[in-house]
């Protein structure tokens, strides 16, 4: 097995182009486990950890955040938690402190597990995955189109994930995840919500309850029209319940060793209802504070 260790982004792209079968390592908390278990034997590993550009984040002229694929979870929490609260909450649920020091959202996208914790909040906030190849340059892929199957994504063999582009939160965001222990657990199912008040729109993301992470589009549309964006009136119980039902219906879970499909559907409806309530209460409180 070749071990490639480029020091610059340009060299990384060149290496991946030269050896399109290489598996990129961005943190390694997932790839190395699979290799240790002999679950996969890639012909080459492309270690992106030394590529410094990837570990940086910046604000683009239009206000969008551009978060390098190599920014570890611990920094997503400490440096971006105020602007990307949903992603920070999700990052906080990943593994142990050691894993959060090492693992990255870029790696999470690369692995494209349906249970990846970053995916629901990225879906809920309409993130864009910036990918690049040396041959064709940059490509911007909406995250909802990025996941193409179980542990499969839209990357071409010569492409690498450069960054995540996502607008800072313009409203409340929440992430919630079911696990059968209270830390260090892979999602049985998870849910993210983001309110986008300027657009009078709700974003959602469902994790670990379908072959890919996915939005609950019908639930978003229902709720976007249902909420009293201007008056910031209370949330009706029936609307919250309907939202939960629609989120449940958007999922396509399976029975597996971590949980049953029925439980996942049930839990998603509860999480959807609860996170919506928290988010809407925050939104209402925000006005009260402002006034």
């Amino acid at each position: 097995m070749d071990f490639l260790r480029p020091l610059t982004w340009a060299d990384a792209l060149a290496a991946q182009a030269a050896q399109p079968g290489a598996t990129p390592v961005q943190g390694g908390t997932d790839v190395m486990v699979e290799i240790n278990f002999d679950a996969r034997r890639p012909e080459a590993l492309l270690d992106l950890n030394p590529v410094r550009e990837l570990a940086e984040h910046e604000t683009l002229p239009d206000g969008t955040l551009r978060v390098g694929a190599g920014v570890p979870y611990v920094r997503l929490i400490s440096e971006l938690g105020d602007r990307l609260p949903g992603l920070a909450q999700a990052s906080r649920t990943v593994g142990s402190p050691q894993i959060r020091n090492r693992g990255t959202a870029g790696g999470n996208l690369g692995a494209a597990s349906p249970a990846g914790d970053c995916h629901p909040p990225l879906l809920a906030s309409d993130a864009i995955v910036e990918v690049e190849s040396s041959a064709r340059g940059t490509r911007l892929i909406p995250v909802a189109e990025f996941f193409t199957g179980v542990k499969r994504n839209a990357l071409e063999p010569d492409e690498l994930i450069r960054a995540i582009r996502v607008a800072p939160a313009s409203g409340p965001q929440y992430f919630a995840k079911i696990g059968t222990r209270n830390a260090m657990v892979i999602a049985v199912c998870s849910f993210a919500i983001a309110l986008h008040p300027a657009e009078r729109r709700v974003g959602t993301g469902i994790g670990s309850a379908a072959p890919t992470p996915r939005r609950a589009t019908a639930a978003e549309e229902f709720l976007s029209g249902e909420l009293d964006w201007d008056g910031r009136g209370p949330l009706s119980i029936s609307a919250a319940r309907r939202f939960g039902d629609l989120v449940r219906e958007a999922a396509a879970p399976i029975d597996d060793v971590r949980g049953t499909a029925d439980y996942r559907r049930h839990a998603l409806s509860v999480l959807a209802r609860r996170t919506l309530t928290w988010a809407w209460n925050d939104y209402r409180a925000d006005r009260e504070e402002a006034s």
Partner: peptide, 16 residues
């Protein structure tokens, strides 16, 4: 959150 069922996975703020 660490004092609640679900811990930092934030499945409840006390509901239920």
């Amino acid at each position: 959150l660490r004092n609640l069922p679900g811990g930092v996975s934030q499945t409840t703020h006390g509901e239920g």
